[in-house]
């Protein structure tokens, strides 16, 4: 197990290296002339040359072959050096360190995605179980419909519909952002998760207000994982319920509920755990759209604004960070199989 973990960790190195290379190249080669995009097409050649120099874009990309004494005095080496020192540079538009902004934005996305995943699990798993036990019933049919609609509804549209219904028409939930402005003013964060910070600071009204803001975007974001989890739970449960040992347990005269909970569920949930882990990528993708619809000040809106505003330092640092999180979560999911399924041995 330890050897497998180490091997997987080493295997991450080329992928992370590749991610940094893609981000580096995407911003330097494909866009043609960055200076035109920043300064506009009317900028004079001198202005553009000056900006190129300022950004260090006039230097060689990978190896300085013209001057072998300074072979590694190149853009990529500097870029990687800064990255390894966690120096992500300053935002071009906000003139603040990218890392500082990342720290402010990340908790908002964590709060949103983790809540969404909780909703998806809390609704999806029971729905799948009941659907499998009562196969062919009304519950089963509705579970299948939920599973189908969940993957077919564009979540940005669902977000807009919810905003209309709950915030504009019925006025029971706030339409966007994380907290009412008068509560947010002067409130000192601890973890950056308002729902928790409100309790830590002894201000339950902040927690309550944060929850009110959170529920709509989190539910919207949960739809796709909810659908996938419900579907997976149902089919996995059906497969297990058809096994011989379930029949044996029933034949022994065990109570139906004990058979389901102790014999079936434990085995059926294994593939579900896998599927839950795989939702991390979907949640991050979905978060970009959900955050946009609900003006949620997280990583998604931050990156989108940076990409649209051509704020390259943020794009570089942010995209690499998100990809890193994604890769690490996937690794943890892979490793968790070994703990959960004693039949799997990694060598």
């Amino acid at each position: 197990m330890l050897r497998y973990t180490i091997r997987r960790l080493l295997g991450l190195i080329p992928v992370i290296f590749g991610i940094s290379l893609v981000v580096f190249l995407l911003l330097r080669i494909i866009p043609g002339d960055i200076t035109i995009t920043i300064l506009g097409e009317r900028a004079s050649p001198q202005q553009r040359a000056q900006l190129r120099q300022q950004l260090g874009l006039d230097r060689p990309l990978f190896l300085n072959l013209e001057n072998p004494d300074e072979l590694f005095d190149t853009q990529y080496v500097d870029f990687m050096g800064d990255l390894l020192r966690l120096d992500l540079g300053d935002s071009l538009l906000h003139r603040r360190p990218v890392l500082t902004e990342l720290r402010e934005r990340f908790p908002a996305t964590v709060e949103l995605t983790v809540t969404a995943l909780f909703i998806a699990i809390l609704l999806g798993v029971p729905l799948g179980i009941v659907a499998a036990i009562k196969r062919g019933s009304f519950t089963d049919a509705s579970a299948l419909i939920v599973a189908l609609l969940g993957v077919s509804i564009p979540i940005f549209w669902l977000g807009l519909m919810f905003q209309y219904l709950f915030a504009i028409n019925w006025r029971i939930l706030p339409i966007s952002t994380r907290l009412d402005p008068d509560l947010a003013r002067g409130f000192q964060n601890i973890t950056g998760l308002y729902t928790i910070d409100g309790l830590l600071r002894g201000r339950p009204e902040v927690t309550l207000n944060a929850l009110k803001h959170l529920i709509m975007p989190a539910f919207v974001l949960s739809t796709v994982p909810l659908a996938i989890i419900a579907r997976m739970t149902r089919s996995s449960m059906l497969e297990v319920l058809g096994q011989d040992y379930i029949r044996t347990a029933r034949a022994k005269g065990l109570h139906g509920r004990i058979v389901i909970v102790r014999h079936a569920l434990r085995n059926a949930l294994l593939p579900v755990v896998t599927v839950i882990g795989l939702q991390a990528g979907l949640l991050l993708s979905g978060a970009i759209l959900t955050e946009t619809v609900f003006s949620w000040p997280g990583i998604g809106t931050w990156l989108l604004d940076a990409i649209l505003g051509r704020d390259y330092p943020i794009v570089q640092g942010g995209v690499i960070f998100v990809a890193l999180i994604f890769v690490i979560v996937n690794l943890l999911v892979d490793l968790s199989y070994a703990f959960l399924d004693p039949r799997i041995h990694y060598t």
């Binding site: 992928v15 993708s285 998100v322």
Partner: peptide, 9 residues
């Protein structure tokens, strides 16, 4: 590497 990025991003 392409799979290491969230698709929309």
């Amino acid at each position: 590497i392409l799979l290491a990025f969230p698709s929309i991003l």
